[in-house]
Write a protein that binds this DNA or RNA. Sequence first.
DNA 1: GATGAATGAGTATTCATTCAT
DNA 2: TATGAATGAATACTCATTCAT
Lengths: 201, 201, 201, 201
Amino acid sequence: MTEPDTPTRILAAADELFGEIGYDGVSVRDIAERAGVNKALVFYHFGSKDELFARILDRYYTEHQRALERAFEADLPVRERLHRVMDAYIDYISENRHYPRLVQRLVAGSGAHMAPIKDNLGALFQSTVEALEDIAPTAGPYSARHFFVTFSGAVINYFTYAPVLAPVWGGDPLSDEGIDERRAHLHWLVDAMLGGMRPPG
Amino acid sequence: MTEPDTPTRILAAADELFGEIGYDGVSVRDIAERAGVNKALVFYHFGSKDELFARILDRYYTEHQRALERAFEADLPVRERLHRVMDAYIDYISENRHYPRLVQRLVAGSGAHMAPIKDNLGALFQSTVEALEDIAPTAGPYSARHFFVTFSGAVINYFTYAPVLAPVWGGDPLSDEGIDERRAHLHWLVDAMLGGMRPPG
Amino acid sequence: MTEPDTPTRILAAADELFGEIGYDGVSVRDIAERAGVNKALVFYHFGSKDELFARILDRYYTEHQRALERAFEADLPVRERLHRVMDAYIDYISENRHYPRLVQRLVAGSGAHMAPIKDNLGALFQSTVEALEDIAPTAGPYSARHFFVTFSGAVINYFTYAPVLAPVWGGDPLSDEGIDERRAHLHWLVDAMLGGMRPPG
Amino acid sequence: MTEPDTPTRILAAADELFGEIGYDGVSVRDIAERAGVNKALVFYHFGSKDELFARILDRYYTEHQRALERAFEADLPVRERLHRVMDAYIDYISENRHYPRLVQRLVAGSGAHMAPIKDNLGALFQSTVEALEDIAPTAGPYSARHFFVTFSGAVINYFTYAPVLAPVWGGDPLSDEGIDERRAHLHWLVDAMLGGMRPPG
DNA sequence: GATGAATGAGTATTCATTCAT
DNA sequence: TATGAATGAATACTCATTCAT
């Protein structure tokens, strides 16, 4: 119940603002004001706006990767493993609503913070491809890599497009019921993809 | 072969820079320099940075919508129509590489230029839902609205994630061959979705 | 009934804007727009913003001086001559409402357009002092020069302060009735001053 | 003897420049340079050029009003009270030479900073009218309101016209002797006005 | 740790003015 | 005469960052 300490408050404020508006549109002043701390403290605790941003990204990447790794590691048949990974993906994103926006904006943006995102997405890409290596070819339209893109796009875009589609969606797409419905759709998608895969060779 | 005139050069430069970096990260100075014109001319011809940005968005929206409408209008069975729309979508985006990045960044961003994007996506959403109204329910995990999100995410994210995935992809995902391979995958996805749909009632 | 020609329209527009807002607050673009002519024509016809302003001032000074000279010249006793000058002053200003504002702003302003105003006011000053030379001393509290300042301030400030005092004035100070009332006050003031003057020596 | 702090130096520089040249003709750069401080500090300490200007005006209005109120409050016969007010007016303006120029320019200018000037002048107007209510009618050429305009114009215009009239004046109108002479003239004016007033009814 | 002040480079935008047609 | 385009300097204001206290 005690007040969070200064670095925590700065991180929280920066997370919100970067998540909502993006790196370029947010000033250190904005962050300090939202955190209720002196502007100079942002630099005292995090060195620079850039490092602060990197810290936030880092935390997301690490947590996200860990969550997916746990799901991947389970000693289960491929199909069950993929469903578990899908659930873990949905869970993580629905609990970290700013994360998909950050990623989407970075991916579509310039090269500034590309390096960590390449590492992160690359690792996830490789885990998925490896998990599918027995049942999917490595190239061609039914290869694991294409399923990866369709797969991750289907999850992440639901969350990023929700605010824009809300007026025509019919109901709140980000309510618990909305997300459950999407979850069911995504599990169907996993099965549809598995059905569409043709073993290599 | 003659030099393009000033407004054209400004539009081209602005398209590139907004497409690569985003509204907030680009200055009017950058645009003028890339266009090789005096900074004040940007304001003389377009009034403000904001109007210049709106002009670029407008053009994309109009062209995109028109391209999809042409595909939707064809007097063909649903399945063939959807495949045509998918081709039109892929064609338009692969010929306008900055467009998906702009849209993705706007969707994931703050509310500044949200209005036109809501209109544009909303219209596309409704066309798709109507096209599917005989073969898909209006709600639930297999409803047209979910297919729309999965569908459009699978197209657009391929293009926006390509630069980031390139190092691990194996081959250039945005080469002609890469896009053809994706096209085949997406056509499979259309059929998979059609197979997964259950008629309403 | 024919449309006035371009230089005339520019002068009219400039007169309004300089009169209402002042030199620094008005741009050549504003003037051209109000005149309904191309901006470059302002420079074609008048050379520069500064020369345009000088032209307007010149016209006012010349007309004003001429109006007062005519009144001064009359072969009448001092008292009648002063009343005639007062009427001419009031008439000129009430027919050229922008003029007192221009003068007031120039007098209170920087040294940019001071030269012509010095000439103009200086001439008026000397005419008045000469007209009074038989009945007023040249120095001291009852000298002509002090009456000149009180006199001209009482005329000009009525017009410049009117818009500001209007809400508390009770009636429109710049209506015909308002001005007539002021005229009566000013004629009383002339007589009071004449009564207060002591012949030199 | 210690150096004044930054806000004080900015206020002093702004007072001089606004007083000499006017709001539109002065840039924040000019102010910062004259104050010998970094340009951004003007915004750090005062928010905007406009707020800085308002601060300066506010101070003048408050001080001026207070000075006149003190003079008005004295428990003296009307005539003595008016002479005291006249002295307070002259004293305040001769000690704050930029003030009459600011007021004159504002009054003759556009509507930007009109609100506070209306309040200020309106209050002064009403005090004067009330002070005279027993000896002057409320309307007509000998009403208090006309005496107010003549009265205040005779004070303020002496100071604003002085620089322009100096070359023909004979002696420096703003020297101590010059001001004393004017003071004598103004006290005569008060008496002349009192003599010219006719009790209401 | 925390603060208020300071800085120099940068932001979008407007300016008076010029010029080719 | 008239016009649309062009220019370079200036405008108010914000930025990330530093520093003395």
